[in-house]
Design a protein around this nucleic acid. Sequence first.
DNA 1: GTGAAAGCGCTAACAA
DNA 2: TTGTTAGCGCTTTCAC
Lengths: 338, 338
Amino acid sequence: MSIQGKKPRVTLQDVADVAGVNRVTASVALGRSPRGGTRVSEATRRRVLEVAHNLSYTPNVLAQALHNRRTHIVGYYAGYETLNASHPFAAAILNGLQRSCRRHQQDLLLFGSFERDSDADIYAALLGGKIDGLVMLPTPLSPALDKLYTSPLPIVGIANAHPAIPCVVVDDADGSRQIAAHLVRRGHRRILYRTHRERRTSVQRRLEAFCAAAGDHAMTVAVSQTDDDHRLTEAEIEMLTAARDRRPTAVVCWMDLCAHAVIAQCEALGLQVPADVAVVGFDGVPPVLPPARTLTTVSAPWTEVAMAAVDHLLALLRGDKAPPETVLPVTLHVGDTA
Amino acid sequence: MSIQGKKPRVTLQDVADVAGVNRVTASVALGRSPRGGTRVSEATRRRVLEVAHNLSYTPNVLAQALHNRRTHIVGYYAGYETLNASHPFAAAILNGLQRSCRRHQQDLLLFGSFERDSDADIYAALLGGKIDGLVMLPTPLSPALDKLYTSPLPIVGIANAHPAIPCVVVDDADGSRQIAAHLVRRGHRRILYRTHRERRTSVQRRLEAFCAAAGDHAMTVAVSQTDDDHRLTEAEIEMLTAARDRRPTAVVCWMDLCAHAVIAQCEALGLQVPADVAVVGFDGVPPVLPPARTLTTVSAPWTEVAMAAVDHLLALLRGDKAPPETVLPVTLHVGDTA
DNA sequence: GTGAAAGCGCTAACAA
DNA sequence: TTGTTAGCGCTTTCAC
């Protein structure tokens, strides 16, 4: 193992000293300056460049950032949600953020879940100046974090719309309508819609659009609201195991992971999917591993959402403005579960 | 949408001005200083704190970092490999890094793949001072990047051992031996071992240990080396479809994703898994979605590897030293494919 | 207990 | 074409 962290970093002053010029001259010669073309003589420039190379000089981006007020770091904050990269949704977002950041030569700083920290700490971490702007997943925040939206920090939201910031979302309502239309075609009339308790806009929009569309198609919808996406409630089990002519013939879940959990539990209850109950999800991130069941789901372009979010954020940083709400289209993918 | 990026940040000077004290006094009063307890009067301190709170003052971490030479940011660089969060391995690593970073109050900066950038650019990005230390996936680097190992930047490697830096790896050799033992018990004698062309130490160790163990167990091993983990080569297909008494009865893959691809293709060729060919993987990251087949694989604690890496990195930053090679144990998980 | 001075490394503006 | 001055926001050292 090498002697790490021992050598002091090579500074611009060092380069200037060796090259026998002023710090500033060296700085300009290194070419990042505006009209550096005429400022430094060709001879000097070459000398400085050579010295810099010999010394393996790398500019201290911190000092640059302090001066320019630009770190070229974009932050991602998943709200109170843990940023679990194993979660297909989170992974898709992360991939999009990375792609876009690379394209724009920005670095990506991940803010994980802060369960333990106070809101003040989160606020400080986010506004400490490490990042130029923030992409976030707007969830119902505590009041203390509402300050975020009026802070000097440029913010773009994804997945959930929020009136205070530009947001990039998918067409939740349309997805729900597509699901409803599909189920009607398959002859379903009694639906169990499984939603999430937290009032995120995307969750709400999916639910409302589905209920509306279901009404138009003369389907009856029982709505089940829960915190735990992975376990059926007593009430749900009771419904699903009721008499054949009364129980719902399809379960629509607000997101894929929930749908997969439902499938597993239905099968455990002796219900065939989709023969006895059809199951539909929402998100449609293609799995890397071949899954047991190909879920019928609304496929949403989460990677593109993340990329658009970074684009908009950088527009804000340039002083341009970003559209309040960008809605990306979704598609229904019919699998073997509904 | 709010007026973003307009308000100037509130600075320590602002706080000091309003509180009617010197910048320094304010700084000390804010309590980050060593013996601030006695330095500032209780009255002053309270006043400063109150003003700071009223103004929603957040210290500029950049300025702090410039002074302290500590950004409290840990970087992760996946080498030339794309950091694909959908890849179970990458996701497990990311989760581990995040957990450990949060625990240690560090931020995590992701360096994506730099395919397009020159080595010099990578080097500059990594050494620019944004990060205090780096966790990386040592892969056979270009000579230009070898400088990284002798640079002042503290580095800890994961997954692949590298003599120049402290590394955290899993017990590749033991995993291979467990696989060999399992296959012998199941009566396999002719094995196809599918390895990767790039000479990473983990890949090498798995291969060598497997061949050695296979030899001990009197199994014959055909080694197939390839760039493309997802597609069987002509030669492999030929082997697998040879006469029953000559073809390999088991395929051992250097990693899970490869194994899943092999399974799919074997089945496409009309070969039953595991009846006609058994398939074994390596990595064993538990999938979030229920997979079609439960792979027989060596399960490695990648999340813990990542966490240990951050721990060691922070030890280096403290001036302590980290063990050259930390080896974490693995376990064979017998699924339904071998 | 408090203020003044110096410096972290860099760059924009102004002189020479 | 080059050097000087000043300042980004903060903290540590040393006088008062």
